[in-house]
Design a binder for these strands. Sequence first.
DNA 1: CTGTTAGCGCTTTCAT
DNA 2: ATGAAAGCGCTAACAG
Lengths: 326, 326
Amino acid sequence: MDVARLAGVSPSTVSRILNGTARVSDDKRDAVLAAIEKVKFAPNQMAQGLKKGRSMTIGIVVQDISSPFFDETLRGVDDGLKNTGYASVIVSGHWDAEEEADRIRLLLARKVDGIILLSGRMSDQTVLNFSTQRPIVSTGRALHTASALGFKLDNEAGAYLAVHHLIELGHRRIAFITGPANNIDAGERLAGYTRALKEAGIALDDKLIVEGNYHESSGMLAMNQLFDTHQQFTAVFAANDLTAYGARLALYRKGIRVPDDISLVGFDDLPGSSYTTPPLTTVRQPLYDIGRIATQALMRIINGEPARGEVPPLELVVRETTRRVR
Amino acid sequence: MDVARLAGVSPSTVSRILNGTARVSDDKRDAVLAAIEKVKFAPNQMAQGLKKGRSMTIGIVVQDISSPFFDETLRGVDDGLKNTGYASVIVSGHWDAEEEADRIRLLLARKVDGIILLSGRMSDQTVLNFSTQRPIVSTGRALHTASALGFKLDNEAGAYLAVHHLIELGHRRIAFITGPANNIDAGERLAGYTRALKEAGIALDDKLIVEGNYHESSGMLAMNQLFDTHQQFTAVFAANDLTAYGARLALYRKGIRVPDDISLVGFDDLPGSSYTTPPLTTVRQPLYDIGRIATQALMRIINGEPARGEVPPLELVVRETTRRVR
DNA sequence: CTGTTAGCGCTTTCAT
DNA sequence: ATGAAAGCGCTAACAG
């Protein structure tokens, strides 16, 4: 080590000072510190990592690099990492189980110390397999082993909340724009919609259910399809906020007022949903908390402590896109 | 190496096969490949990095982990990295020059092979200093050395475009919600606003200029301040889209129609701006392209090629929040 | 308290 | 074409 020579000590001593591994006499310490300052020395993390078997890096797998949904969760992750010395490398699985697995293999080759999997598409078994190499914390699944932890939110209950709210306001013809057919969360939200209707004695009408893909454009398309087929309804429940935004625009284009003519409910409560016109009534997912709590749980596992952590439940946020049917 | 023993060859041979560094006889190659498959071997990237002096990682410095603005740019970065073998570690400077420098030092200690600095707050000189250690590509500044490249968009011209559009529509009383006072881009946008007004022979009215902070809430506050002080105006130009969203909500709350009563223009063209109600007229920043082009430029520098790259100019996107004054 | 030694997992001369 | 040996920069015994 350069610094060692400069300070006239051995590399070990420098290392000891850097890591606080052992007592070092004050004069040597001062000399070393001075040398470090002089050369602006910072230990090579790759060498450190190689030696210690810790890369001080965790991997985050998202499905979409550019989505307010993952964004908000990442903010939680970032805060959870604060003062841990850990950095994160973020990769995208692009909503594809295969690609997701590939990305995880890459992270593993990079020797990340742990992985956070957001909205994974892989099977639980695959996650469990990977977790033998490095601890994994995942959202969207219920897992609980020594090296794998999952947080599952009750989508069914969340959707029920939304539809029940609409029913309480007197709505009986409630359209539903679902998420992608192969998406588990989307399926659960559909189940919640169905249950709320059934409980209220409202017959399910397939024509009022149209498939979207979680993006704005699909919300718009879905609304137009509803209108083109002349469906009658007074409220729309969208499987996520982005879809609701699209639906909102379709309504605007038709000159239909929200909430005066039609009520609209979303799902997620993205940061932007408080600023739509009008502000969106939606089911709040504790996105930030999920990120933060998942990260803290992962840190615990990495440090050999038992895995634990719980996230707040979904809750309905009533804003201004819903009102009593007249 | 485990694989080496299994295949009955030396570690060097395995390495040669992995890297294609030299010819290897077919039978040995087959044996090694089989062994790799069997053990599912993937080289330890930290060891590789330590030896080769390349971490195959670049650092990205954003100012806000959770903002549609950076998001869109990051998507471009991600695409630019595709098939390069590079991964990125994203850190946030939180709009603070000091923190930004700290984060860069962290990235440097991690031996990233290059850095992309988005909307940096540091001085050009500081960037140049860091660039002696690792190549840096930055947005928001004009730089062009062997190891530092900057892309600067013409904010002044962009703002001019927006205000000129409003003036052409007959607006004369145009309010401006600025960005943070210490923000360079914001200052340039103010200059563009001023020039457009002056060119049209419209006197500048300080009362129509109110400071925001680039967030939705400040747009809302700014509008309210304008109303509370009884300003007269028929159009509002917001320093960025988020601010425009906030202004839009304030207008909605007052029952003022957009664009019928008041026209509104933003700046950025965030992905969500096509789906506001009504869709927002704004100055388009090629966020995605910036990310992609910056990344490709950085890759070139890393590979020893001359730095180059150019981003598309700002352009006005006329949607539905502006109309001719009656 | 501190220096010497070995070695983390890989690549790269240098021989052969 | 291939193996042996050295070494990337650091830390962790092991002596002393």
